[in-house]
Design a binder for these strands. Structure first.
Lengths: 167, 167
DNA sequence: GGTTCCGTACTCGGATAGTTGTTGTCCGAGTAATGAGGG
DNA sequence: CCCTCATTACTCGGACAACAACTATCCGAGTACGGAACC
């Protein structure tokens, strides 16, 4: 799985605590997490294409969540960054080799192996769907020490002030 | 996910219907599935290292399941071929950037994002653990037309005869 | 003083190289069956 | 006829290239703000 998934989720939690109407540029998000700015921008583009975040150009622009944090699931982010296709790909090798049947009707039902693998992936997706960015935030509020939460909030606030006073 | 996972699972189901005491060479398994023989051999080595299949050298040698099919789970195969590490890797980026805390004790509890992702992977692994090669075989017996099952059995039997009469 | 227009600086978006992991292949070490030879 | 032994052919195992995907980066298109000029 791409490292960009981790970065993207962290970015979404940061964007979730942004005051409504405000946006945060990709460069600031990269600075906050100490990751390569240009590469993070690439993943944010993917989030934007998927409709998870909205992008605003020009000064005072940046990224912001496109919908409430409670409506952004982890699966949404993972699929946007890593692609929609399943991890297990069935290449139908059962239809090849000496035991193959010429009648295509024999292969109407999906391969049992693929079904088992996809059942596991469904369980994985269900679990990822059950967790939203809002849940992650609530868990942060409950477990992270207040001092650390304040440090993050302070930094974001300072960025907003700098952008307002000296654009 | 590597394509070798699919091949390996198919191979295990074939090995499961082998008469006890017999073995099937990697070349025959590759022939049965029409996959590159040398590359399949590589994955069979992984299965052997993991103790899922046993290998026998020399004439009449080959691969055979190392334990009953009911005790080989899909997770065993997937981990052997794709590696033991989790798909999601937490690089602890929360400990970096301007909001980081100097006190290491603040990061004793795992990152909530990693916990959520690993929870999903646990669900995936649970589902894969619940399915064994024996289950796949039973499902095959119940759904695949008899003619096709016979074709496969015939082929395996013929291979065994050829190996016995003309080694 | 209010309005309009232009310049500017900042943003995102897609097109472009470098590096690691997956895919694919090969040849050598080891082994068990085979057949001949001898007792 | 039975036993011993060298031969032989077959197997696995690990070492060696080619490709693709992930990682990382850059520059151009677009946009909203700021200020200056004009009415």
């Amino acid at each position: 799985m791409s490292d960009g998934v981790e970065w993207s989720i962290h970015c979404c939690t940061v964007l979730a605590v942004l005051p409504p109407g405000e946006a945060l540029p990709a460069a600031r998000l990269a600075e906050f997490h100490e990751v390569p700015p240009a590469y993070l921008a690439k993943h944010l583009q993917a989030l934007s294409s998927a409709g998870i975040v909205g992008s605003i150009s020009g000064p005072r622009g940046g990224y912001a969540l496109a919908r409430p944090a409670a409506e952004v699931t982890l699966l949404d982010i993972v699929l946007a960054v890593d692609g929609e296709e399943t991890a297990f790909r069935c290449s139908e090798i059962r239809q090849r080799g000496p035991a193959a049947q010429p009648d295509p009707a024999a292969y109407r039902r999906p391969c049992g192996i693929a079904r088992a693998m996809w059942r596991a992936e469904d369980a994985w997706r269900r679990e990822l769907t059950a967790t939203t960015v809002a849940d992650l935030l609530a868990e942060l509020m409950a477990t992270v020490p207040t001092a650390q939460l304040l440090a993050g909030a302070e930094w974001i606030q300072q960025v907003q002030i700098n952008r307002r006073t000296r654009p």
